[in-house]
Design a protein around this nucleic acid. Structure first.
Length: 424
RNA sequence: GGAGAAAUGGCAGAGUGGUCGAAUGCGGCAGUCUUGAAAACUGUUGAGGGUCAUACCUCCGGGGGUUCGAAUCCCUCUUUCUCCGCCA
């Protein structure tokens, strides 16, 4: 959520940023926000004055009672009746106006960074980096869902029976490979200075709002109505919410966390060939990196996160590219996002395996995540996160790109984690 | 799940209807002293809104209520602790 003050003072820049996102009604939305804020503050001031007066009267009454001047006190009491009525009404309209303002603010996405390319669809994303060779596969090469069946390492039908579509069962070497990847990713992340944490897989409403999944993506999360808890769509939610309502000291930066969690997504509205196999699941595993940074350092941090993910993909020897997302494709809360895509040779398409974003202070504003700056003032921190990495599509890439007539080879770096070097 | 107790500033902990945003101690910060440090002493030290700056307003776990006035009384929710039950 943007800060109202920022919108008020940088209206032009805000509108320009929203235009890059192709946000409809941006002008109207911003105008409404600003006027709601003005009205809110006017009501607040009025209420404050009424309260100040009635506070003063109350004090006077107290003193009169103390000195035994009951009659005078009674007279003052009469005067408070009207004030009470007024403050009641003002409080109510303040609440309404605050809610209204909140609603507007919830609808305004983050302002994209200068270097975010304009554009409306994923076709307008800018490829900024490309590495790795696309292997030439043998004639009988198969897409990963066929390989999974052939070697009996992932059973989609079985998952179907137990839960439903999009909940695969990993078996034997497939299960072991999953575990190997999780451990490998966590080790790489901790070596790079990220602190490993284990967090709840269900979160409350406040946490959902804190990172911006609510109210924006309500329908995308599984929800337990009985206890009003949400299954996490990404570790970003519980990990970033560690810092909800926190005021950091400046010397605590940088804060780097990593966590493995399963992720749950309803994926309402996604069907068809592109969601086959591991391409899109309701439950999948992901290792996430999260950083909390000083505002002047967050883009440096973003670069270092990008380089870190690069290094992992290099070690896995997977062909990949990095995209800078355009204004139309970038997430609601993000100011700048780099997507990593691995080439899935047997499907002849790119699969997103990581998304690394700087949210600047957009999340921090909702989270109330601040630090004491050198002037002793509280200032919003910047938050970032990225996948390092998401398992299923890495797995898909590995299975497809490493297949040989003899079986699926295991990348060297994973062999110690797997305890085998081929799936056959 | 049942019974009881509790929730106050970074921490500990007082405060049971009025002048309490809150005693005191510890911690933090600044200063005095010191070659420097420690100790001692002095001062300072929560957050948000609002203002050019003041003023002023709000916040004592969350929400609601009683009252002219609530940290303090009532209701409710949440959390923690103790005991009992159940149990991976």
């Amino acid at each position: 959520m943007l800060q109202v003050g920022f919108i008020r003072e940088n209206t032009e820049a805000v509108l320009k940023g929203l235009a890059k996102r192709n946000l409809k009604n941006a002008e109207e939305l911003v105008a409404n926000t600003i006027s709601a804020d003005e009205e809110r503050r006017a009501i607040q001031t009025e209420l404050d004055n009424v309260l100040a007066e009635s506070n003063k009267l109350s004090k006077d009454i107290g003193m009169l009672f103390k000195s035994g001047e009951r009659q005078k006190a009674e007279i003052l009491k009469q005067k408070t009746v009207l004030l009470k009525e007024q403050s009641k009404n003002l409080t109510e309209s303040l609440q309404n106006k605050t809610n209204e303002l909140q609603e507007f603010l919830f609808l305004i996405p983050n302002i994209p960074n200068e270097i975010v390319p304009s554009g409306s669809t994923e076709d307008d994303n800018e490829t900024v980096y490309n590495e790795g060779e696309i292997p030439v596969l043998h004639k009988e090469a198969l897409p990963h869902w066929e390989l999974a069946k052939k070697y009996d390492i992932i059973d989609f039908e079985l998952g179907n029976k137990i839960a439903g579509a999009g909940f695969p069962v990993y078996k034997g070497k497939g299960a072991r490979l999953q575990r190997a990847l999780i451990n490998y990713f966590l080790d790489k992340n901790t070596e790079a200075g990220y602190n490993e944490v284990q967090v709840p897989h269900l979160v409350n409403e406040a946490s959902g709002f804190g990172t911006g999944q609510l109210p924006d993506k309500e329908g995308q999360m599984y929800h337990d109505a009985q206890d009003n808890l949400y299954l996490i769509p990404t570790a970003e939610v519980p990990v970033t919410n560690i810092f909800r309502d926190v005021i950091l000291k400046e010397d605590e930066f940088p804060i780097c966390y990593t966590a493995y969690t399963p992720c749950f997504r309803r994926e309402a509205g996604s069907y068809g060939a592109h969601v086959r196999g591991l391409n899109r699941l309701h439950q999948f595993d992901k290792v996430e990196i999260v950083r909390v940074e000083h505002p002047t350092k967050s883009y440096e941090a973003l670069d270092s996160m990008v380089n870190h993910v690069k290094e992992i993909l290099q070690e896995l020897k997977l062909p990949y590219r990095i995209l800078r997302l355009c204004g139309g494709d970038i997430g609601f809360t993000s100011a700048l996002t780099y997507d990593f895509e691995v080439f899935s040779t047997a499907q002849d398409r790119w699969l997103e395996v990581s998304s690394v974003s700087n949210f600047e202070n957009f999340q921090a504003n909702r989270l109330k995540l601040r630090f004491k700056n050198s002037n002793g003032k509280s200032e919003l921190a910047h938050t970032l996160n990225g996948s390092s990495l998401a398992l299923p599509r890495i797995l898909a890439g590995l299975l497809e790109n490493y297949q040989t007539p003899e079986g699926i080879k295991i990348p060297d770096v994973l062999v110690p984690y797997c305890g085998f070097d081929i799936i056959n």
